[in-house]
Design a protein around this nucleic acid. Structure first.
Lengths: 176, 176
DNA sequence: TATTGTTATACTCTATAACTATA
DNA sequence: TATAGTTATAGAGTATAACAATA
């Protein structure tokens, strides 16, 4: 078994040249990284956290809590954090007033985290800020924007571990 | 001037309903955020840094240095970091052997940062790891992947402040 | 006097280890 | 004995303030 100089995922590798499609996937992925980690996106993310007075970790948890109360244990697994760190984040969120702990209904060891009304307000604000696309996306025609969304939604749907609260929503086609 | 309950960027807002196109842009942006900040992407990013023995900041700088030596002052502005922090990052990169300082040719106050050969090796490795798309992108047909790439490249091209080293490269269409 | 970069320091974010309470 | 969560502590990442050298 030889390792090619420029490794390409075996999944998309076929002798007939379909490897080009995989190259397109690679470059498309690079483009998404460039847009979300390059450009102005990171400082915007920072700004959203600052505007909501939350750390990135707290903001992500708030997004997840929109689906209802969650046991701390589940949050630990979802975000791959250490339990002790989750404790400190939830402490912060309680001080901030956006969430509170409540006893687990059946397991007296466990606690569930639930969003407060203030949390809902903050979340709505955060989602609003996060959703504002960079001007560059608006350069596409409405039709192209819709096309892009349709493709991305299929990718997101195929991606495991993305919480429903983070998922994009379908939008009526511009012509309809 | 009233602020609508669900703010929409004025740029895409038109009375005839083109606001839908803007909604598509918003949701497309959410999709990109979900893919790069949700899912497995963050832990992959973490893994790449670990594999290269670099912090995220150092890795970003390494990407930028592929364009040639850069004065520290420019790096500070590009990444919006504090100068003192940049000092510590470059210290790390020198210890790691991926970059070194050299005197600025004309300004004796200034220093330029230049990538070493080891830096080029590490960079190539990092780019390889970073470029591997999540399996979900490979679910699209080669044709759709190419379509997605074409749309994203136009967005990236319209986005200011994305360094050439981060930009995706064009790929021949699957049919051609 | 303004600018480039460094040193010393402190603060924020995150993880590890030892512990308590319940199962 | 194993699991849920907390406390205490340590480490990485980032910023602020005071400073040295050059422009």
């Amino acid at each position: 078994m030889t390792i090619p100089d420029r490794a390409t995922p075996a999944a998309g590798q076929r002798a007939d040249g379909a490897v080009l499609g995989t190259d397109a996937a690679r470059e498309a992925w690079r483009a998404m990284l460039a847009l979300t980690f390059g450009g102005q996106a990171p400082s915007r993310m920072h700004a959203v956290c600052h505007a909501c007075d939350l750390t990135p970790a707290a903001l992500k948890i708030l997004l997840l809590l929109s689906g209802g109360p969650r046991p701390m244990r589940e949050l630990v697994e979802t975000f791959r954090h250490d339990p002790s760190y989750l404790t400190s984040v939830i402490d912060l969120m309680e001080r901030r007033g956006v969430a509170r702990r409540e006893p687990h209904p059946t397991d007296r060891r466990a606690k569930r985290v639930v969003m407060t009304e203030e949390g809902e307000r903050v979340l709505a604000h955060a989602e609003e800020l996060l959703s504002v696309p960079p001007a560059s996306v608006q350069m596409l025609t409405p039709d192209e924007q819709h096309q892009l969304l349709a493709l991305l939604m299929r990718v997101v749907d195929a991606e495991p571990g993305i919480h429903p609260a983070m998922r994009p929503r379908p939008v009526p086609a511009p012509s309809g």
